[in-house]
Write a protein that binds this DNA or RNA. Sequence first.
DNA 1: TTAAAAATCCCCCAATTTGGGGGATACACG
DNA 2: CGTGTATCCCCCAAATTGGGGGATTTTTAA
Lengths: 209, 209
Amino acid sequence: MEKRITIIEDIAAIREGFSTVLSSVNKYQVVNRYATCEDALANLDKDQPDIVLMDIELPGMSGIAGTAQIKKVLPDCIVLIITVLEDSEKVFQSLCAGAGGYIVKNSNLESIVQTIDEAVAGGAPMSLSIARMVVQSFQLQPDSPLSERETEVLQSIAEGKSYSKIAADLYISRETVRSHIKNIYRKLEVSSKVDALKIASANNWMNKL
Amino acid sequence: MEKRITIIEDIAAIREGFSTVLSSVNKYQVVNRYATCEDALANLDKDQPDIVLMDIELPGMSGIAGTAQIKKVLPDCIVLIITVLEDSEKVFQSLCAGAGGYIVKNSNLESIVQTIDEAVAGGAPMSLSIARMVVQSFQLQPDSPLSERETEVLQSIAEGKSYSKIAADLYISRETVRSHIKNIYRKLEVSSKVDALKIASANNWMNKL
DNA sequence: TTAAAAATCCCCCAATTTGGGGGATACACG
DNA sequence: CGTGTATCCCCCAAATTGGGGGATTTTTAA
């Protein structure tokens, strides 16, 4: 069955380029092309795309917000991000918004079709460098000022545990937990859970699991 | 320069198979092979491997715990997991422990060498299905009983914020936050932050960012 | 159109938690 | 022999949490 594709990209040349390429492939049917998310969202019900190719930098609503909106209306629609630069922040935000993969803007025509095929087949197409970015996000930075035990305690705080619960889980006294927390606060130069967690997670000093 | 490789795999046939293949490649030098993490860890200082090929299911210490231990002693050592089945839990635990990529056990010889090359070049080699697994972990399950606002509130609790802080950030009254939390507790059949967070994060009902 | 769900706000209240002090002891590493 | 780590203890006041009991409005769905 033909897959319905919508393209959202503000640069006309790139938009029409993708469109021309994909229109020539039998299994794909480009139902519409838009320069902004706003336009695309207004016609979403009518277009009913199976796949959306979405630029990340758009005038008005960003591609990330747009992705979230589209997934809200059409949860099964696959949104593929078209990108030039690989900004780690934006990559994660897109993934959280529901993006299913990445297409590099200047890649050749066959690889674009191949990428879409992979996505349709249930894969999560992304370049090796994006995969590395994602994998790295799971790994701890080795530059943490916190000791192992302190990290363990902070981790438990991130899970919402109280001092008493942490103490029980680690088989230590509640006072010891307090000592660790005092040291954490001193090292990170903060004086509350929220601030400590903010700093530690921004620097990837805690495990994500 | 020759890369020093250590193989940890309890099945002799597979262990020797990898060893033979990699020994025949000039840029790689298999310095040692072990059946258990314990043995490998005892000789780590002497072996000084650049790359470790690690089976995930081992007698005694698991490959995941072993990976964490190795990274503690040799932070720059690249640990590649050798795996047959792709269990999402274990994949994430390995990544958190510091694994740099995955090698599928029954892949052909050239692709094994290619995977190691990618890892050395700074990539994060993994199969498409593992990439999908990782990407999916960033995406919300659509089966959440919580409303958007409730999810937002729970998200804030996960960040360690107090009711007052949440209220301020969302521009609502603290009492409204309390109402949302009461509803969250009712829906999830819990009566504390910890339990609510446990259920919601286990089901992927909250954003990771 | 009507009922349910969602989002907003208010009160009372007691137990728990938090974070600020002030300590102490023991062990390891260099 | 100091510095860091890990463990434990005390006091105390302010803040937080979670259990009740409500209410109103808007949005959504049946």
